[in-house]
């Protein structure tokens, strides 16, 4: 029984991790309709940012979060302005093949620069856990979980309460109309992509405190972000929390109760079924192309 409860807790915490690094993916898809296959590379860059800042500057990843946010924000802005802007509104295949190309370039340049070594680094507090009646809660994951709720909430508020957020939302609904109303659509897209990249960088930094990092880690993160986005409803931001939690819990329970290998299969079958039965996500709030 306590095994199941522990698995449930692990799942919820893992779900927080998933939600945190999927939020940017959902935001970008929701606003621009771009499926960003280079998403995992943003996670990877965020992770390496935290790694080098810790190694070279002895900066605690929690302190360096704003720095990774800033770095990835700028990177995302440039990427969008230079490349991705050119395929917004083109047939969707163009966007995923373009971002796949970007994925290859970033991942392999990173391999050249940083080698294929698996890296970890020990932040003193991150290795410790809270224990309570035999249940274990790793601190780093707890922080990530809280951060996930915080980031999704903040993005949500930003979209619903601020002027920039209103511009983003109206562009998402109908960019031609938005342009007629005097919104600079290119700037909105660049801002959206930069924001999405920034929060993904934050996620990457957090991930680096408890997972092994390496230049080729990206694709698996992209895949999970896909799953989360589909479960929660593509482009529906609060759905990222729901999708992440659900995925985390299902995976963790499957791994604990059935077999770790099977949990991946179960995840993908659930994804496949959700797409067939509820393509707008479990809450039915996502968008269709």
């Amino acid at each position: 029984m306590s095994l199941t409860i522990q698995a449930l807790i692990n799942g919820i915490l893992l779900g927080g991790v998933y939600a945190l690094y999927s939020a940017g993916f959902c935001l970008i898809f929701g606003v621009m309709g771009v499926v960003n296959i280079a998403h995992g590379e943003l996670v990877m860059l965020g992770a390496f940012a935290a790694y080098w800042l810790f190694l070279l500057g002895r900066i605690d990843p929690l302190i360096s979060l704003p720095i990774s946010f800033g770095l990835l924000f700028c990177f995302g802005y440039i990427l969008q302005r230079l490349l991705i802007n050119r395929v917004v509104g083109a047939p969707p295949i163009m966007s995923y093949i373009l971002t796949f190309g970007i994925h290859l370039v970033i991942a392999n340049v990173a391999l050249l620069a940083w080698t294929a070594d698996f890296r970890t680094f020990a932040v003193p507090w991150a290795g410790t856990s809270l224990t309570w009646g035999g249940l274990v809660i790793p601190k780093a994951r707890l922080v990530t979980f809280v951060l996930a709720g915080f980031v999704v909430g903040l993005l949500y508020l930003l979209l619903s309460r601020t002027r920039a957020g209103r511009a983003i939302r109206s562009t998402a609904q109908d960019w031609e109309m938005a342009r007629l109303m005097g919104i600079n659509v290119r700037a909105v897209y660049a801002l959206t992509f930069a924001l999405g990249a920034g929060v993904t960088g934050v996620a990457g930094s957090m991930v680096s405190t408890f997972f092994v990092i390496h230049p080729q880690m990206g694709l698996q993160y992209t895949i999970v972000a896909f799953c989360v986005a589909v479960l929660g409803g593509m482009g529906y931001l609060p759905g990222a929390l729901l999708g992440g939690l659900l995925l985390g819990v299902v995976e963790s329970l499957c791994a604990a109760l059935l077999s770790p290998g099977l949990s991946v299969a179960v995840t993908f079958f659930i994804l496949f079924l959700v797409l067939l039965i509820r393509p707008r996500g479990l809450l039915g709030r996502g968008m269709l192309e």
Binding site: V35, I223, V230, M234, L271, L275, E289
Partner: peptide, 10 residues
């Protein structure tokens, strides 16, 4: 579109 791509991938 992307939904078909993701479903086949999954």
């Amino acid at each position: 579109g992307a939904y078909f791509a993701i479903a086949t991938f999954a």
